[in-house]
Structure formats: C-alpha cells, structure tokens
Simulated assay, not measured.
Amino acid sequence: MNRPSIARPRRPRNHPDRFLECQRAVEDTVVSAIGEASAAGWQKDEIIAAMIAVADDMQLALNAKVLLSVETELGKLMKKYR
C-alpha cells in the first residue's frame, strides 16, 4: 500500500491551531497504517493500543533525551565554574 504524504506545517510552532493541523496532517497516514496492519491479520483494537504504546515510548524517549541534554549542559557549566 502507498501511504499518503504528510503535509508540511503552515503555522509557526507557537500557533494555537498547529497541533490540530499536525493531527490532520498525520491522520491519513495513521489510518493507512491501521488498514495495512488489519489486512495483515491484526485486530484494530490491538493495532491502536500498540500505536499508542509506541507513541508513548517515543515521547518518553524524547523527554529522556531532553533531560539528558540538560543534565549534560549543567554538568559542563558546573565544571566550568568550579
């Protein structure tokens, strides 16, 4: 199956409608992925639960990278000013 292309953002990062715009941009791709997984034999409830778990894991990893980056920079500053 060909997945739909995802539109580029049209609004700046701090615009109140940007999140909704992003949801709309990825919706067709998500629906397509669900269709592919369903055609492969997975049930829709388990597909969606798996997608949520993957997205949650990715968010946690992103937060961990940010935290690690902040800790690294703080460590550098502490060494600099000792």
Rank of each mutant, 00 (worst) to 15 (best):
E21T: 06
Q43S: 10
P16V: 00
C22D: 14
F19S: 10
C22F: 13
A50V: 02
L20I: 10
S38K: 05
V31Y: 04
V70P: 03
C22Y: 11
M51Q: 08
L68E: 14
A25N: 11
N14L: 14
A50R: 08
Q43E: 15
P12R: 05
M51T: 00
D45N: 11
M58D: 10
R24Q: 07
D57Q: 07
V31T: 06
R24Y: 11
G75S: 03
A39M: 08
K44D: 15
V26A: 04
E46A: 06
S38D: 07
E36K: 04
A39Y: 08
S38N: 09
D56H: 05
P12Q: 03
V31S: 06
L60M: 13
P12S: 02
A49T: 08
K44G: 02
S32M: 10
V30T: 09
D56W: 02
Q59N: 06
D28C: 05
P16F: 02
M58A: 15
A61W: 06
E36V: 11
D28F: 06
A53R: 07
N14T: 14
A39P: 03
F19W: 05
I48G: 03
D45M: 05
F19L: 12
E46S: 13
Q23F: 07
L62S: 15
K65P: 00
D28R: 06
W42S: 10
H15N: 04
L60T: 15
A61C: 08
N14P: 05
L68I: 06
A40L: 13
P9A: 01
A25F: 03
I47P: 00
S32R: 08
R10E: 12
L62F: 15
A49Y: 01
R24I: 07
A40N: 06
E36R: 07
D17P: 01
